[in-house]
């Protein structure tokens, strides 16, 4: 059974192996530097569906199927699925699970959802409630734009701090045990608190979420006794260029040096020089596809051995912003290691 460390961290006791992952991305992401690491590159924003929402749902479904197929199991072997997305009522996840026919929990953690899903999947496996579990998350630029901002064809300008919602989905199959014996394993789960420092600019999500990421990282370091240098790579979800710098500075004031091994998937997904994405990528799909694509392959190839992934989310809605509310942030961390 899992062990509680400190205030916010769970240390898994059983070996929780990530047996396989799958990632699907859109066209703009396919032009980015991480493109070779993704499994499926969609040719357009619809992928044969007649709406963007249906497309996003298909992305989740196909990512889930592909991850299960790569793990060598069938969907009947999967005990439970944790899935989430950004859309109202989590329709991408619910409609995708309608066809998967696997026991389903729908999640909303904004852009932290993938890490929330992996955390819960690992915890339920460690507690003996499941043997194999699936975590899935997605986002789609077009569905997010129309829900949170303006119609796509509306002629507006973005601010330099605005981020670009990634069209992407990621799925990971987690299982109990280490019969294959090669990991990677989920070793620690640090659940974040909602932190709100009163940022009201909805075009500066990085600035709004950085204190939450900082809070979770401080809790993780305090609970586990680890330091940033204990990891080969620390990744945050989608703080972007602005939030990444803010986080480095916030942790510096707490005497943690993040300059050597820290990056943000929002800063990795696109090429800032060639792709016009302002402060970088965002969305559930950003950290989901980057983890399931790039990071997982690096772990398998032993180019990375110990990684800390911090999913970051902004828990706002258009309604809350219009009512003048600030942007609350959330961040969940999982530590992954090739060694137990």
């Amino acid at each position: 059974m899992a062990v509680r460390l400190g205030n916010q961290t769970i240390k898994t006791e059983k070996p929780i192996t990530i047996s396989s992952t799958a990632s699907i991305v859109g066209t703009k992401e396919s032009e980015g530097p991480l493109s070779p690491y993704f499994d499926v590159h969609m040719e357009d924003a619809e992928w044969g569906e007649d709406s963007w929402e249906k497309c996003e749902s298909k992305m989740q479904r196909e990512a889930a199927k592909l991850a299960v197929q790569k793990s060598g199991y069938t969907s009947d072997d999967i005990d439970i699925i944790f899935a989430g997305d950004l859309l109202n009522q989590c329709i991408s996840s619910g409609f995708s699970a309608r066809e998967l026919r696997i026991p389903f929990y729908g999640l909303y953690g904004a852009c932290s959802t993938m890490i929330e899903g992996i955390s819960l999947a690992a915890a339920i496996i460690d507690g003996g409630g499941a043997d194999k579990a699936l975590a899935v998350a997605s986002s789609h630029f077009c569905t997010a734009e129309r829900q949170y901002r303006n119609p796509l064809e509306y002629g507006g300008q973005r601010t330099p701090t605005a981020q670009w919602t990634v069209t992407g989905a990621g799925a990971a199959v987690l299982k109990c045990g280490m019969e294959s014996g090669d990991g990677p394993y989920i070793t620690h789960i640090t659940t974040g608190k909602v932190v709100d420092f009163g940022i009201t600019d909805t075009n500066n999500m990085g600035g709004a979420m950085a204190p939450a990421a900082c809070d979770t990282l401080l809790a993780h370091f305090a609970d586990t006794g680890r330091k940033p240098e204990d990891y080969d790579l620390i990744l945050t979800g989608d703080l972007g260029k602005v939030g990444r710098e803010v986080l480095i500075n916030l942790l510096e004031t707490e005497d943690y040096d993040m300059r050597n091994n820290y990056n943000d998937t929002g800063c990795m997904m696109f090429d800032f020089d060639k792709q016009d994405v302002h402060a970088g990528g965002s969305g559930c799909g950003c950290v989901a596809a980057t983890f399931c694509g790039y990071v997982y392959k690096m772990l398998k190839e032993r180019k990375l051995n110990r990684v800390l992934i911090v999913g970051t989310g902004a828990l706002l809605s258009p309604t809350s912003s219009f009512q003048g509310e600030s942007v609350p942030g959330i961040a969940h961390a999982i530590a992954i290691s090739n060694e137990l």
Binding site: P160, G198, I199, P211, V242
Partner: peptide, 13 residues
């Protein structure tokens, strides 16, 4: 303080 810091450091249009 944090809001002022973000206001000051974030790139402007």
């Amino acid at each position: 303080d944090y809001q002022d810091y973000i206001e000051k450091t974030s790139p402007k249009s």
